[in-house]
Amino acid sequence: MPAAKPTVPSVWARQRRQREQPALSQDRIVAEAVRLLDEEGLDALSMRGLGTRLGAGATSLYRHVANKDELIELVVDEIYGELRVPDADPATWRAAVTECAQSLRAMILRHPWSATVLGQVGLAELGPNLIDRSERMLAVLHAAGFAPGTADLALNTVLAYTMGTAISEAAYLSMLARSGQTEDQWADDLRATTEQAIEGHPRMQEGYAALHEQDPRQIREDNFTYGLECVLDGLQARL
């Protein structure tokens, strides 16, 4: 990519401009990639496009990241760094696991593009952020009284429920974003169609009647919380 022309046609102006440009680094590349993904989605991510945003050529990026697959591994581990994990305490393990699960769900909903890559990314479990958060979550479960092997199973159960639910939510919210509608508008538009579809199914009608006046966001919150409580009840029964 040709260098940008200096405002003043002088070698000294050009060199000053180059010195003021932040140095390209893997951290800077990853941070900009996350911003790009949040703004435009996974389909918009390319080494060439990212290089343009950074004011550098794709070749410069390859000095720090070998290919797009590696970049995806890096951005996934970057967002795992947002997870909150409380300190291990036997008396508050359920509250701690709940906070971890809520933090993971919030992370996925902040970065809806992650719904298509989590669980499909190379050796994601070797990323430093995910290793650190996994170690801390296991400490919470060990403090609760789970044996080492069982703690791994308990953690996997919580993660499977949380990620499965949040990924479905993220896909739904991404669909809404593409449609240009809010959740309330979407629900209103579907009301007549839904009522017609469930006609003659009294249990479905009863459930829909109880929910259709509620805030869709609160319904999602309640659904997630109920399911998580069921998972934690099951784990507690195993102790």
Rank of each mutant, 00 (worst) to 15 (best):
A115W: 04
R110Q: 11
I72W: 00
Y161L: 01
P22Q: 04
E195L: 06
R19L: 13
L36D: 05
I131S: 13
L159M: 15
A3N: 08
L239D: 12
G119C: 01
L173V: 11
M175H: 14
E183S: 15
Q185C: 07
L130R: 15
Q214E: 09
E199R: 09
R94T: 09
T194I: 07
L54V: 05
L228M: 03
S179F: 10
P6R: 00
R220T: 07
A210G: 05
R48I: 05
G127I: 00
R14P: 04
V117F: 02
T150N: 09
A33R: 00
A166F: 04
A139M: 00
A66T: 08
R16T: 01
Q102F: 10
A187L: 14
S60V: 06
L228F: 00
Q185V: 04
G55T: 02
D77Q: 06
R94L: 02
L61H: 01
Q205R: 11
A13C: 11
T225S: 11
E206W: 11
A33P: 03
E40S: 13
Q181V: 08
A151T: 03
T98G: 14
L228C: 04
A95F: 02
V231C: 05
A56Y: 06
L228P: 01
V76C: 05
I198K: 06
L130H: 13
S103T: 05
L235C: 03
A139H: 00
E32V: 12
